[in-house]
Design a binder for these strands. Sequence first.
DNA 1: TTGAAAGCGCTACCAT
DNA 2: ATGGTAGCGCTTTCAA
Lengths: 347, 347
Amino acid sequence: MEENKRSEQCCRDDVARLAGVSGATVSYVFSRKRYVSPELVRRVMRAAEELDYHPDLLAAAVRRKSSDTIAVLTDDMASPLQIEIIRAIQESAMNSGYFTHICGGVKNLDSYVDDFICRKVDGVFLSVDPAKVNNKSIEKLLDRGISVIITSLRGFSDPRVCGLELDFGAGVSMLVEHFKDLGHSKIAFLSCFDDSYEYDKRLKSFGNNMQRLFGEANPVTVCGSPPWESTIDRGYELAKKLMSTGAEFTAVMCTNDLMALGAMRAFQESGLKVPEDVSVAGMDDILFARSSYPALTTISHRSLEYGHRIFGILKQNIDNKSVVSRERISPSLVVRESTAVCKSVNK
Amino acid sequence: MEENKRSEQCCRDDVARLAGVSGATVSYVFSRKRYVSPELVRRVMRAAEELDYHPDLLAAAVRRKSSDTIAVLTDDMASPLQIEIIRAIQESAMNSGYFTHICGGVKNLDSYVDDFICRKVDGVFLSVDPAKVNNKSIEKLLDRGISVIITSLRGFSDPRVCGLELDFGAGVSMLVEHFKDLGHSKIAFLSCFDDSYEYDKRLKSFGNNMQRLFGEANPVTVCGSPPWESTIDRGYELAKKLMSTGAEFTAVMCTNDLMALGAMRAFQESGLKVPEDVSVAGMDDILFARSSYPALTTISHRSLEYGHRIFGILKQNIDNKSVVSRERISPSLVVRESTAVCKSVNK
DNA sequence: TTGAAAGCGCTACCAT
DNA sequence: ATGGTAGCGCTTTCAA
């Protein structure tokens, strides 16, 4: 047994030679795409070990025209929810032998499309504001045989794009009901979007539900403005604004957890206790929601399962070009400490 | 001008034919690796446009033996600091035409090494607990010509690995001084690590600085246990533990911001006001530190610059195999609302 | 200044 | 059950 001199690159045919088989057989041993006798498998593996052989996946990709790579495009890496989802996707992808390119939001999708094509990614997950992505870009990807899945189908006409939607509308509905159960009726909504933003269903769902459950036609809402940031600071700001309007409220819900965290801070700063004086609810059930003070009542999308499903659908479409799947995730209510029975039952 | 029938894949030679030049010339136009006359450049570009040509970067990678791809390995995607750094790295990488593989912590480095080699990544950033990575794995990467940069050089002997260290020791030092300036002397440290964990400098630095500034030989510390989680919940837990010991303290510092957030929650729950009754400081200056209640005094590593520099060093080593760089980032103190002058100046 | 052609390491078809 | 071999789309040397 010879000492490995320098780590000279070694290729398939070196292994073949040492094992006394053909190059093709080496390939087949590694790809398991056809039967190879146990004896040869052993010899090949031994030789590969000996030479510290590493098959070149890029060369394989060139031939197969598929790279075992997916891309995840997000417009907000500061969003804990998005990170949790990406984490789950990467985990699933890894388990299936796929690598995951992470693509941040500096550039918009359109500028990434050509790169995705040139790098032959097999699938793309778009976790972005629908308003920011162009139908043409998606079609271009699809035309090239790249599977695409999105968090919100809104605005996308191509029947080939998959979608796994987060059901924010249902989430809001559950929250309004939760508040009603606690005896609240003066419920305010802190939305980072206003009516002019057509893709968000939360504000609309809030209106519908307040109407449905309380016959309230004009519930109090405080809205942000472009660029529609749903951050802690924005939540803080909108909560202050709510207080300054003098509107009555005993419960507040927000576009997401981050905003709820900011809103709680604003209330606490102003001497209002949560949940004694105001109940506050968020949305998304990010990790921080468990550990805030008080711990946040919110809506969970089960981000881990969600991410796994995203990859699952992508994989299905990659393997069997044509599946396509359009689903919606059912969220669930997570009650913690930030919401409580309404004290002032009379008005 | 013909209508694009179906989006048939088109390759370099199709473009060459349409432009009336050789395949080589098309390559050179795109790679800019040798002079091509303006006239031909124009013809090639026109033809490429017409055919919607996308050069196959994987094929190029096979020949060049380099994929214009880096990998980022993190053992904790739930850490906001790590995410901020990854975001910065990806941004830099993108600007240089590199794609970024994100690799989460399910598996340890060792199990990723072969994949990195097979996929011919050009460089790897390791943002992991040094205890979890094996010298052999790193050498294997390096032997294959893959550049490696780490957040902490501790325990790595190979002179070829780069390092850009976060200077936690200096951070702790600045914090102790900050507390001293505010009149505190009863300072406690909530550490997710204990003395048995050799890679963390914070606890040691705390001891040194308490000795140096106060002549205090046995400052109060409360430590976590394996698996050394520095989460909000762990901070909460350790703060409770601190209070239960009956030890005197007017200021508390923590392994990181997350733990500080948890600690504040614990104090607040127990009726201690921050910073009136206890000053609390964190470490890392994550996004949330700005928006907590009260806003957290902490140490900033300037994660954006840090990430950019990480990629810069990696790139240098990729381009000019042999540079290597070992640096340390100087942190800075960020004073916010969670620390204040010590009330009980006596005792 | 440009082109021809020999690979890069692999896959998958066609043989046997 | 295995091997031979023609590509995949590109880079880069060599020659013109």
